[in-house]
Design a protein around this nucleic acid. Structure first.
Lengths: 229, 229
DNA sequence: CCGGATCCCCAGGGATACTG
DNA sequence: CAGTATCCCTGGGGATCCGG
């Protein structure tokens, strides 16, 4: 299929030969965040993509050794897509790219899509646990989802494991130690450090539970500030 | 001009809205490596790009606050392009992307372009000084340039400053402590750690001078091996 | 020679409909 | 659900042309 190359013996150009096509890195993002998943799950996680383009890219990425496709066991009988080790190695690329992209989040665009898993990966990728010795803790993030799915909520659970690790997943926790609720720009701005607590509160974020957990949740990306607007 | 967006409130998607277009990141690469330079310098550093596309991208990137264009002082009277601070912040992105792309360098393509500055940035980005206390040192890299410019050489100077820093630039050093000469794949493979010394020598690289300097030049990217072929 | 602008053509992307 | 097929259209590749 698509084998267009920049024709340069340079590792950046070679990387872009493989993952530089439109939608390619976003597909990898979705596979990183969702793990092994079905065609439709990818389609839902990539609002705006055309189905032919998705299937085409999946073929390309499989050919390039980044994505693997396998048939699920009998009861399901559907194909599952996941990342190969080489594909998982793209995580640092998406992390740095996403960290740089935080500064682009200031401009508001009311009809942008927004999904719960993007809330999750932002917490996992752009924050660190400043005080692991304080033990495990659970933070619940809540924001209104895309305008397209009006009424529904984007909910993510952030787990501090007490050993310095932070993981996040979509869903609602039974007994969170802290709940942050508000528009995506505020929740995201607070956990990525683009807003400080005072600014986020003033802008209308709702903080429920152990507020001192916010001091443990240290933003690692040194992005611009969202406070200007 | 091009304002096509993925329409997702996600920092990765937002980043790709700005630098995801074809050639965009390669233009940034060239500006990072070359510093402030003219239109023609960029064109020469980006073999294969169409001039209309280059000028269009430069406009887009300028509009996005990544590139700045300024008129050079009177005697030159030409426009100079350079990166803004925001544009320079893309360096970590290109580093990680380039590190991942090293594994794509194994496939040989005889008519790929190859330029001296790519030799330089590879050394600066993917190596570290394992023993700064040993003092300053200079390593000369030499490889045949693109088939297009047959006969000419790609030459880069790697400077170990004796304080842990490594910088590199295009050119020929007067009195290098070490000279590595051979095909791009071997020189690049050796400094990025995809080949070890024995493999590179067996494949025909020429090493002249203080060979123990090679132990100081530690590859930082954990790429695949080129030895398989 | 440098710094583009203009033109033409085709491949790749976007939207939708359709099928196993 | 998991794609394939189709159509349309924009953006990219390549060459040429033009003002400074």
């Amino acid at each position: 299929m698509g084998m267009r190359s920049y024709g340069q013996y340079c590792s950046v150009a070679r990387a872009l030969d493989v993952v530089g096509d439109r939608w390619a890195l976003l597909i990898v993002r979705e596979l990183l965040v969702q793990g092994s998943c079905r065609f439709t799950d990818l389609k839902n996680g990539l609002p705006g993509i055309a189905t032919n383009l998705l299937s085409g890219r999946l073929k390309d990425l499989e050919e390039a050794g980044i994505v693997s496709r396998e048939d699920a066991p009998p009861p399901v009988a559907t194909a599952l897509y996941s990342l190969t080790p080489s594909g998982r190695d793209l995580e640092p690329v998406l992390k740095t790219l996403g960290a740089w992209g935080l500064r682009q989040m200031t401009t508001e665009r009311p009809d942008d899509a927004f999904q719960p898993q993007w809330l999750a990966y932002a917490a996992a990728w752009f924050t660190a646990d400043a005080d692991p010795a304080a033990g495990p803790a659970v933070i619940q993030l809540v924001a209104p989802a895309s305008p397209a799915t009006r009424g529904s909520l984007a909910e993510a659970i952030v787990d501090l494991d007490g050993h310095g690790g932070i993981s996040a997943r979509v869903g609602r926790a039974a007994h969170p130690d802290l709940v942050l609720e508000g528009p995506p720009r505020l929740v995201l701005g607070l956990i990525t450090g683009m807003l400080n607590v005072d600014q986020a509160v003033a802008a209308g974020i709702q903080i429920t539970g152990k507020r001192d957990l916010l001091d443990r949740l240290q933003p690692t990306a040194t992005g611009a500030s969202l406070s200007g607007r």
